[in-house]
């Protein structure tokens, strides 16, 4: 037979241990202290960001590799609209579960970073008051044009205007992306490069095959009717 009230005393021992332990062990007192600390270490979590007195941090980022907040549009170079990756194909608009993306396609084509004429979004709005950060737009995008930002200081007094991000607010450079999601960005760039290389290799192979075929054909032609000049086909 156990001591009368023994269970209560056991429980009290546990709380006492936690009371004392919270002064000595970090894993017992896991609460982040939100106060300002004079260290310039990068924050590891949303709750751990340094904040100067009175400062509004608009571009605060977390560095957890996959942390996601709201989408942003990627561009490759210094002038955003010259190197924008988005071609306004509107797949993300269709797939967005809460329907928070709104795109208007441009009427004329414009050269993109690769030097290829492409359509571009004349309007690209994301209503972040509706967006639920599900990342589906990122997954369905065939052009790697939209990725997740991790900026979270977005509060604004204007409910409808302030939370509607326009195209120019959304445009961020690839370097910025590398800064906030280094691993993910590197993987994505690697994949793009690989795909490009594969595409190029395929193209090369196709060109090679075409050339060979043409050569053979030419040879055959030449054999058939000597004197006709060689035809060099240029496969694009």
């Amino acid at each position: 037979m156990s001591l009368l009230g023994g269970g209560i005393f056991k429980g009290m021992a546990v709380t006492l241990r936690n009371f004392v332990g919270s002064y000595f062990y970090k894993d017992r007192l896991t609460t982040n202290d939100y106060s300002w600390r004079p260290s310039d270490k990068l924050p590891q979590h949303a709750g751990e960001y340094p904040k100067e007195e009175g400062e509004q941090l608009r571009d605060t980022t977390t560095v957890t590799n996959y942390s996601r907040n709201f989408p942003m549009l990627l561009h490759d170079g210094s002038e955003p609209m010259d190197t924008i990756r988005c071609v306004a194909c509107q797949i993300c608009e269709r797939e967005c579960p809460p329907q928070c993306i709104y795109i208007e396609k441009s009427t004329e084509k414009k050269e993109n970073a690769g030097g290829k004429p492409q359509f571009y979004p004349a309007k690209f709005d994301i209503d972040v008051s509706v967006c639920m950060s599900c990342q589906i737009c990122v997954e369905v995008c065939p052009f790697d044009a939209i990725v997740m930002n991790s900026q979270f200081e977005l509060s604004t007094p204007d409910r409808f205007g302030g939370l509607l991000l326009r195209r120019d607010d959304l445009l961020k450079s690839n370097d910025y992306y590398h800064n906030i999601h280094p691993e993910e960005a590197a993987a994505r760039d690697k994949r793009i490069a690989e795909e490009k290389a594969a595409k190029e290799a395929k193209k090369k192979a196709a060109a090679e095959a075409a050339r060979k075929k043409a050569e053979e054909k030419a040879k055959a032609d030449a054999e058939a009717s000597e004197g006709t000049p060689d035809i060099q086909e240029d496969a694009e």
């Binding site: 009230g5 023994g6 269970g7 209560i8 056991k10 429980g11 546990v14 709380t15």
Partner: peptide, 14 residues
């Protein structure tokens, strides 16, 4: 273990 010690034998909870 600690959680069980805190809760599982507590007379009031029982």
């Amino acid at each position: 273990d600690e959680y069980e010690q805190l809760l599982c034998e507590n007379e009031i909870i029982l």
